[in-house]
């Protein structure tokens, strides 16, 4: 079966983000960008399905500016076979992204779409569920185990109280959680090979999709700073502070 893996380019998770002085957003100029960590897990899972012979082809997709191609190259270096870049300079929001992905699914006809449960920039946690809704497909969100069967896929989900398992009719959408796997590092030969793999470029207009943002960001501010704390000299002092000042024990 064919597997489609949408990936997003975000600020690297190790970077301390800076809120722009004018309050319009977060500074992304001259900041290290990487693939959203949950999407890396999605690529890894898809590539493993291919290595096991379950998946026949892994197609990576990214929606965003020209530089999203770098993220697609990373996916290709990890083992995706080819990539599609939906180029747009408009702010991407989950509903618009889900619509673009639906158009690509209609064209590519994958049996499985695997993507991160959320992107670590907007933390929306919506795109996979929205895509499943628009396609009328089953959704296995927050997956920690994915086992394709015949015409179905069994997904173990990380829920608040532990784990639950659902069996989904294929085709289906799966969103990945942390425990699903540990993504590989692309080897140098594979990075070189990835440069020769094809990236197809399309526009939202080609797909007939309106990606105009629905939500308006009025302002972005830094969270309230924690007021400076104190150092205590002993365990006794700590216990006293927690009991009598903070009153949390």
């Amino acid at each position: 079966m064919k597997v489609l893996v949408p990936v997003k380019r975000v600020i690297d998770y190790n970077v301390k983000i800076r809120v722009k002085a004018d309050g319009t957003g977060v500074e992304t100029t001259n900041v290290k960008m990487s693939m959203n960590p949950f999407d890396e897990i999605a690529v890894e899972e898809a590539v493993r399905l291919k290595e096991k012979g379950t998946a026949s082809e892994v197609v990576a997709v990214s929606i965003g500016p020209a530089q999203a191609q770098e993220t697609l190259r990373t996916a290709l270096a990890m083992g995706a076979d080819r990539a599609i870049h939906v180029q747009t300079d408009v702010e991407t929001q989950p509903l618009g992204v889900a619509k673009a992905l639906k158009a690509l699914v209609d064209k590519e006809q994958p049996q499985l779409v695997v993507l991160g449960k959320q992107a670590i920039d907007d933390d929306a946690n919506q795109t996979g569920q929205m895509l499943a809704a628009l396609l009328g497909w089953a959704q296995g969100t927050f997956a920690s185990k994915v086992e394709p069967g015949s015409g179905t896929v069994s997904v173990t989900r990380e829920v608040d109280g532990g784990l639950e398992t659902v069996e989904l009719r294929l085709p289906a959408v799966v969103t990945t959680d942390l425990r699903l796997n540990e993504p590989r590092y692309a080897s140098l030969p594979n990075i070189m090979k990835a440069k020769k793999k094809p990236i197809e470029a399309v526009s939202p207009a080609d797909l007939g999709v309106d990606m105009t943002p629905r939500l308006t960001t009025l302002k972005v501010v830094e969270p309230a700073r924690r007021k400076a704390g104190i150092k205590v000299g002993s365990v006794d002092e700590l216990v006293d502070k927690l009991k009598n000042d903070a009153r949390v024990i």
Binding site: Q93, L95, A98, Q126, M130, A133, Q139, E158, D160, R214
Partner: peptide
């Protein structure tokens, strides 16, 4: 995990943002 699973599916079917 319950609400995050259901709500976006509702929003997309209503064609609204979440």
């Amino acid at each position: 995990s319950f609400g995050k699973n259901v709500a976006p599916r509702v929003a997309a079917l209503l064609d609204v943002a979440q």
